[in-house]
């Protein structure tokens, strides 16, 4: 069970959070101009890599804020958390 450092609240138990999948997938501003394939790319395609991945997390049972996380899926190490709208910290 992770210990997650919410950028707004500090360290909290994983049970307070919910995971929201891959980060930095921006909803297209003009969906109507996209082909079926382009829209499907946004809608369905997720990388799910083994290794360092950027993820969305929500402090659901806390401040309810969404934020991003740099996590290594191979060993569950959380390298960093950062707020929505911020760039991922370079490693």
């Amino acid at each position: 069970m992770f210990l997650i450092n919410c950028p707004y609240c500090g360290e909290r138990d994983q049970s307070e959070f919910s995971a929201g999948g891959e980060a930095h997938i921006v909803r297209p501003k003009q969906p109507t101009e996209l082909s079926d394939d382009q829209w499907a790319e946004f809608l369905f395609m997720r990388k799910n890599i083994k290794g360092v991945q950027l993820e969305r997390w929500n402090h659901a049972h806390g401040c309810r804020k969404w934020f991003n996380m740099v996590r290594d899926t191979s060993n569950d190490k959380i390298h960093a958390v950062y707020k929505m709208g911020e760039k991922p910290p370079l490693k």
């Binding site: 929500n58 659901a60 969404w66």
Partner: peptide, 13 residues
């Protein structure tokens, strides 16, 4: 509620 919050916070801040 959480879906709406998600859109507000991440897509349409």
């Amino acid at each position: 509620l959480s879906k709406l919050e998600d859109y507000l916070q991440t897509e349409w801040p």
